[in-house]
């Protein structure tokens, strides 16, 4: 590099770091920055080996590339949240002015209202018949077309679809033969899930008797841990296998055969996110401390696909979110840090 100082300046302009007192796992961008200000909320969940965990709300100013922790908005959460998500579309009846709805998953699905200066627990959505036992939720997804609908995935092999306005279960499906680890909506009534049984299945709420398996991991019962559905082009999804450095890109029209496998991570991949603004770009992060941005080519070379850009963090990256509201920004979490990177 010809000018290291300039580069570091550039880098600092294009990345922001938030240091948390705790290790961070879950993380979420609010859907829209408020009209009044360029501030966007980011929720950050702790990973503490204790019943009491924390969710912090950070406000992020993209203009000044700065973040500010709002202690008044922090709240306790039982167990480390497995996922955080702000309500995707702001124009729902549920949304009140200047407040955001936040959902968290862990032992149960919870809804919180994040106001200007406080956070209120709105509801705890529990479908369990017994109080003694609990089947933790591994993930959930908020339907952005039908924002009253949240689907959760559980280790009890089911997916549960909630109507959060009514606070009732719309349906519960035994989605897999083993634990379900992630769920993603494709459209209002179509979702997909991944499981310890190694399959990606697509479900349509209009026909609850059937599902469609569009991928199975090559080694039977190699768990699939995460699933990302390309919102720009719903034909494509990405999934990751446990302890694998691969990102598997699927075309739902050609079940079972991935259209691509991205294999440049040098340790297991922990998170994936499609670009909100482009159907061809996906970001991934993993235990090799790297975040990679890939551009899916029309034709893959003989040696596989190289990412187009990379970022090296200080340690294993556990989480990755791509802001839908400000698609120039990607957030990663490693150790106690959340870092925002401009792309």
């Amino acid at each position: 590099m010809d000018n290291s100082t300039q580069e570091s300046r550039l880098r600092s302009e294009h990345s922001v770091t938030y240091d948390s007192p705790h290790p961070i796992y879950a993380m979420a961008f609010s859907s829209t920055p408020s009209l009044a200000s360029p501030l966007q909320r980011i929720a950050v969940g702790s990973f503490i080996e204790d019943y009491n965990n924390r969710v912090d709300i950070i406000s992020f100013n993209a203009d000044s590339s700065s973040v500010r922790h709002q202690p008044s908005l922090s709240f306790d959460h039982p167990y480390p949240p497995t996922k955080l998500m702000f309500q995707p579309n702001a124009h729902s009846s549920l949304r009140k002015s200047s407040s955001d709805l936040l959902a968290t998953s862990g032992d149960y699905l919870r809804l919180w209202e994040v106001r200007e200066n406080s956070v209120d627990a709105i509801s705890l959505l529990n479908n369990s018949k017994t109080s003694e036992f609990c089947a933790p939720l591994t993930s959930f997804d908020w339907n952005d077309i039908e924002p009253k609908r949240i689907g959760t995935s559980s280790i009890d092999t089911t997916c549960t679809i909630w109507d959060i306005e009514k606070g009732v279960v719309e349906t519960q499906l035994i989605a897999h033969d083993k634990e379900v680890y992630d769920i993603a909506w494709g459209e209002a009534r179509v979702f997909a899930s991944v499981s310890a049984d190694g399959s990606v299945r697509i479900f349509d709420l209009r026909d609850k008797e059937h599902s469609t398996i569009i991928y199975e991991s090559p080694q039977p019962d190699t768990p699939l841990l995460r699933l990302a559905w390309n919102k720009q082009d719903l034909r494509y999804m990405a999934t990751i296998l446990m302890d694998s450095n691969k990102i598997v890109i699927l075309d739902i029209r050609s079940p079972t055969m991935p259209v691509a496998e991205l294999e440049r991570h040098r340790a297991c991949v922990n998170a994936i996110a499609w670009a909100p603004q482009s159907s061809r770009h996906i970001c991934s992060a993993g235990d090799d401390s790297q975040a990679l941005i890939w551009e899916l080519p029309t034709v893959a070379g003989p040696n596989g696909i190289d990412p187009i850009s990379m970022y090296s963090a200080g340690s294993e990256i556990n989480q990755l979110q791509w802001s839908a509201a400000q698609p120039d920004w990607i957030a990663i979490a490693f150790a106690n840090k959340m870092q925002l990177l401009k792309v």
Binding site: H14, D233, S279, L296, P297, T298, V343
Partner: peptide, 21 residues
């Protein structure tokens, strides 16, 4: 890959991540 190109034109035409962060 059957991925991208023409259809991407309709969405994020030509969007490419810049080398910032």
């Amino acid at each position: 890959l059957g991925v991208a190109s023409s259809s991407s034109a309709s969405t994020g035409l030509g969007w490419r991540p810049s080398q910032l962060g």
